[in-house]
Design a protein around this nucleic acid. Structure first.
Lengths: 174, 174
DNA sequence: CCCAACGGCTTGAGTGTTCAACTAATTCCC
DNA sequence: GGGAATTAGTTGAACACTCAAGCCGTTGGG
């Protein structure tokens, strides 16, 4: 109804095509990842990511707020998610010693088993959806592009370290 | 719980980094697009996309099933979404002449106004989130990569024509 | 010391998405 | 032509996410 006074900088035609393709590619990939994970392991991708982050943390435990930011989740979302996963027995909540406001989420053995059960087919799916479609040069370009976007948006303050520090097991995609 | 018998093809370390960055970049971009559109125009991105597709269709009307596939929406999702947008007065349902099972969704003037009100700030957001982060070469690479992914997944049968055919107005991102 | 501001986390209502089940019209094909 | 299979679309229940509000702890001046 109300149109801003200034004419916005429209997208050029190539930009628009890029945006639409980017959007489409993303929907296709992530919708399928979501479906696959839900079917094979009965968990949404957001939960999977939370479990991955927890599994990589020292002691397989992490402060709620830290877990929220590393898994790109709002606090609210994480709260709901951990509540559900606690019911499922995959996660335990513990009070935080140093700050009585805090909560620590800890991955249970059952949660780890759940995660490890979900990983193989998920990895397979990611490979077949994404990497099988790309040449090595494209893969590399995609990494650089993604990092450029992340840097731009977070202003050089990425939500998690680029190189995961968990060293005792093969890396998990998240 | 049940682990497949064959060791899956693990992701290489560069592949894993690429996947994580891709995932992160995507979340950052699309979460923000969603938030922005919700705040400024009070509609989710999925609804916005539906309105865009409708606005580009001849007669600003389209069969439900066609609309579903061009907007990358499930039939169920579209049904719910159109129901809501019909309540809001943005869309009208009409019976389909040639197939009495069919329904035709038509964009109302109010719906068009809603869309046109939402576009400028959305375009601005897309530009500042995505294109401001990329060089022209990267933008081009992103287009090629996205198209490669789309082709791979849809097996050369993209859900909508690459070049939008609406000609009487500046292109809208979706 | 105390009160106000802040930070960490949870909660509940509202909304969107999914999945499976369902109705109804159409097509296939014997 | 008639009945099975298919296609179009809707519906409701289950679930996840968002937003705003709220509850404690903690911190930082006066």
């Amino acid at each position: 109804m109300s149109v801003p006074e200034e004419e916005p900088r429209w997208l050029t035609e190539p930009e628009q095509r890029t945006w639409r393709s980017f959007l489409t590619a993303n929907r296709l990939v992530f919708d399928q990842v979501e479906r696959q994970l839900q079917q094979e392991a009965g968990l949404p991708h957001a939960y999977f990511e939370i479990l991955v982050r927890l599994s990589e943390a020292p002691g397989r435990a992490m402060r709620m707020s830290e877990l929220a930011s590393t898994s790109l989740s709002s606090r609210s979302r994480l709260s709901h998610a951990v509540a559900r996963m606690e019911e499922a027995g995959w996660v335990r909540r513990k009070p935080c010693e140093s700050d009585r406001r805090g909560q620590i989420a800890e991955l249970t053995p059952e949660g780890l088993a759940q995660l490890e059960g979900a990983v193989p087919s998920h990895v397979e799916e990611v490979r077949s959806l994404l990497f099988d479609a790309l040449t090595e040069a494209q893969r590399e370009a995609l990494l650089e592009i993604s990092d450029a976007i992340i840097d731009h948006i977070t202003d050089g303050d990425p939500p998690w370290p680029v190189v995961p520090d968990g060293a005792d097991r093969p890396g998990q995609p998240a």
